[in-house]
């Protein structure tokens, strides 16, 4: 599904990613762990096409297509979704209008007619339940005045609406209390199918307990230095990253 080969990227002239190789197959959940500044968020931003980042080398194919050649919105239409670490507040744009624009843009891309107002609102209602999002929130401006937890739930709600095939969760667990974390994680799990994959960026084991990743990678200084099974995350929770750093340096 996703194949990253020797990816280098920089921001403001500073190289952050220094040769990432990663393959995610359909149905798999990959966790991406690492210390602050390792390049985790850069990788997610590069994948979704944030113009602030520049790819200097390497390739990314997504379902056989050249992902890097696509505009951000085309990547979204192809099934890529990013749950933002810091969801953006957009005053004056209601959640309903925002989601309607997004859903219909994708439908247009797929050659489908825009969704009727009735069907759309019904869909909003159903998907909202997945993350227990208040109906009042859905009528407000995008993320405006939402609490940290509500913003993250809103991200998963949008994911439910857009039905991506590959979701990137960028520290979706940060700033969440235990109940909100459970709601978000369970919401995410409800949306899983054998065809959907995810790349989960996190510092903590807590979220992974719910999501049960197939593969765990450790990112250090712009490279993946260690890859393992779910046990690796448990070990990192116990021992931190220093032993991996030592191993990597020994190599």
């Amino acid at each position: 599904m996703l194949e990253i080969k020797d990816l280098h990227a920089c921001i403001n002239g500073k190289e952050i990613l220094k040769g990432i190789n990663l393959t995610v197959n359909a149905g798999e959940i990959h966790a991406l762990m690492g210390q602050n500044g390792a390049g985790k968020s850069t990788l997610s931003n590069v994948l979704v096409g944030n113009p602030a980042y520049e790819v200097t080398h390497g390739s990314v194919t997504f379902n056989g297509k050249d992902l890097l050649a696509m505009k951000p919105e085309e990547r979204a239409h192809e099934g890529l979704f990013l749950s933002f670490q810091q969801p953006v507040e957009i005053p004056g744009v209601s959640m309903v209008n925002f989601m309607r624009a997004a859903v219909n843009a994708k439908r247009k891309y797929k050659g489908l007619e825009p969704m009727g107002a009735g069907d759309f609102l019904k869909m909003m209602r159903e998907k909202r339940k997945i993350v227990e999002l208040d109906s009042k929130l859905a009528n407000r401006s995008v993320n405006e005045g939402f609490s940290g937890g509500e913003k993250k739930r809103n991200e998963i709600f949008q994911m439910a609406m857009l039905e991506p095939t590959l979701s990137i969760l960028d520290e979706t667990d940060s700033g969440l209390d235990v109940d909100a974390l459970r709601i978000v994680a369970e919401g995410f799990n409800k949306l899983r199918t054998p065809e959907t994959s995810a790349l989960v960026i996190t510092h903590y084991q807590r979220l992974l307990d719910y999501l049960k990743p197939d593969v765990v990678h450790v990112l250090m200084d712009g490279r993946i230095v260690k890859t393992g099974g779910p046990d690796l995350a448990v070990e990192i929770e116990k021992r931190g990253f220093d032993w991996i750093k030592a191993e990597a340096e020994a190599d």
Binding site: V48, G49, N50, P51, K71, P72, E73, R75, A76, H77, F81, L82, F84, P87, V88, E89, I90, P91, G92, V93, N97, F98, A101, A102, V103, A105, K106, Y109, S141, Q158, L162
Partner: peptide, 23 residues
């Protein structure tokens, strides 16, 4: 940031600009 956020959700840059101006 808001423009990019909307683009990530599949809204074209032009449409996103329109939505922001309208808002």
């Amino acid at each position: 940031q808001a423009l990019f956020y909307m683009q990530q959700r599949g809204i074209s840059r032009e449409e996103a600009q329109m939505l922001l101006k309208f808002a």
